[in-house]
C-alpha cells in the first residue's frame, strides 16, 4: 500500500508539469482551434535558453534561470505564432499543423546543434530536501515544481477570467467573428495567446529540467505525446481538464510502472487514452461548443 501511495504521490507531483504542457496545447486549441505540435519542443528550447544566463553570469541563482526560461518561452511562443500561423492561411488546418511539426523538428535540431546533443546539468531548488513521514517520502523540489505549476495555473485562470485581455481571449475562442465585429483584434489576441502559452511553456520546461536535474533534446518527443494525451483526456480546449488530466496521467503512469514495469507503462497510458476516446471522446471537461 505504501508503494502504491508513493507511486501516486510522485506521479501526481510530476504530473503538474504535464498539466502545464497540456494547458499550452489546450489554450491554443481553445482560441484558434489549431494544434501547436511545436509547443513541448519550444518549452524545452526555452528551458535551454535559461541556461544561457549561466553562460553570461556564472553562479546565477536557479530562480533567475527559471525566470530567463519563462521569458524565453514567451519569445519563442511569439516566433512560433509568426512562423506557423500568422503568415499561413488558417483555413487550411493541415498547413498549420505541418508547419508546427516542422517547427518542432527545427527547434529540436537547433538545440542539438547548440549543445551537440549533450545532456546539460539544470539547476534545481530544494533538490536536497526530502520530507519524511515514516517510510513515505516527498521530494522537496517536486513540491516546489507542483507549487509553481499550481500558481502558474491560478495566474492563467485569473488572467482569463478577471481581465479584459482574458475576456477578449474567451470571446475569440467562443465566437471569433462576433469578437471581430465588436472591435477585438483577433490576430493580436491570437499572438498574445501564443506569448502567454509560451511563457507557461518556458516555466514548464524549466520545471521539468529542475525536477529531472538534466536537460536533453530527447525530452521534447515524449513530452509532445504526453501533452497531447493530457489535452485529449482533459477535453480539447478545457483548461481545468488539462490540469486534472495532467495530474491523472502523471499518477497513472507511475502506478502502471510500479505494477507492470517500464516497458508496459506507456502501453497502459495509451489504453487509458483509447478508453477516453471510446467512452468519453470529449474528455473529462468537454467544453460547450460555440455558435460559430
Amino acid at each position: 500500500m505504501l508503494d502504491f501511495l508513493q507511486a501516486v504521490s510522485d506521479g501526481v507531483l510530476f504530473g503538474a508539469t504535464y498539466a502545464l504542457i497540456g494547458i499550452g496545447f489546450t489554450l491554443v486549441f481553445g482560441v484558434m482551434h489549431k494544434i501547436n505540435m511545436a509547443y513541448a519542443a519550444a518549452s524545452i528550447g526555452a528551458a535551454y535558453s535559461g541556461l544561457l544566463l549561466l553562460e553570461v553570469m556564472a553562479g546565477a541563482p536557479p530562480a533567475a534561470v527559471f525566470a530567463c526560461a519563462f521569458l524565453a518561452g514567451g519569445l519563442l511562443g511569439w516566433v512560433v505564432y509568426l512562423a506557423c500561423f500568422h503568415f499561413i492561411p488558417l483555413s487550411h488546418p493541415l498547413a498549420t499543423l505541418m508547419s508546427t511539426v516542422g517547427m518542432l523538428l527545427l527547434i529540436d535540431e537547433v538545440v542539438v546543434h547548440a549543445t551537440d546533443g549533450m545532456p546539460q546539468n539544470y539547476p534545481a531548488m530544494f533538490d536536497d530536501v526530502m520530507l519524511h513521514a515514516g517510510e513515505f517520502t516527498l521530494r522537496g523540489d517536486l513540491l516546489l515544481v507542483f507549487g509553481v505549476c499550481v500558481a502558474a495555473m491560478a495566474c492563467l485562470l485569473a488572467l482569463l477570467y478577471r481581465t479584459r485581455l482574458g475576456l477578449a481571449t474567451r470571446a475569440v475562442s467562443q465566437q471569433p467573428i462576433a469578437a471581430q465585429l465588436c472591435g477585438i483584434q483577433v490576430a493580436q489576441v491570437n499572438a498574445i495567446t501564443f506569448v502567454i502559452t509560451g511563457l507557461l511553456g518556458g516555466l514548464a520546461g524549466a520545471m521539468i529540467g529542475a525536477s529531472v536535474g538534466t536537460l536533453s533534446p530527447l525530452l521534447s518527443g515524449p513530452l509532445t505525446v504526453k501533452g497531447l494525451v493530457v489535452t485529449v483526456i482533459g477535453g480539447l480546449g478545457s483548461i481545468p481538464g488539462a490540469i486534472v488530466a495532467g495530474l491523472l496521467v502523471g499518477g497513472f503512469e507511475n502506478v502502471f510502472q510500479l505494477y507492470r514495469g517500464v516497458t508496459e507503462r506507456d502501453l497502459y497510458v495509451m489504453l487509458l487514452l483509447f478508453a477516453f476516446l471510446v467512452f468519453r471522446p470529449g474528455g473529462i471537461f468537454a467544453p460547450r461548443g460555440g455558435r460559430d
Binding site: D3, Q6, A7, D10, G11, F14, R139, I208, S211, V212, S216, L218, L219, G221, P222, E253, N254, Q257, L258, G261, V262, T263
Partner: peptide
Amino acid sequence: SKWLLADTNFATQVR
C-alpha cells in the same frame, strides 16, 4: 531497475 532512454522520473526505480 529498468527505465527508458527519455524517461524523466526515476523515483520508483531508485526506491
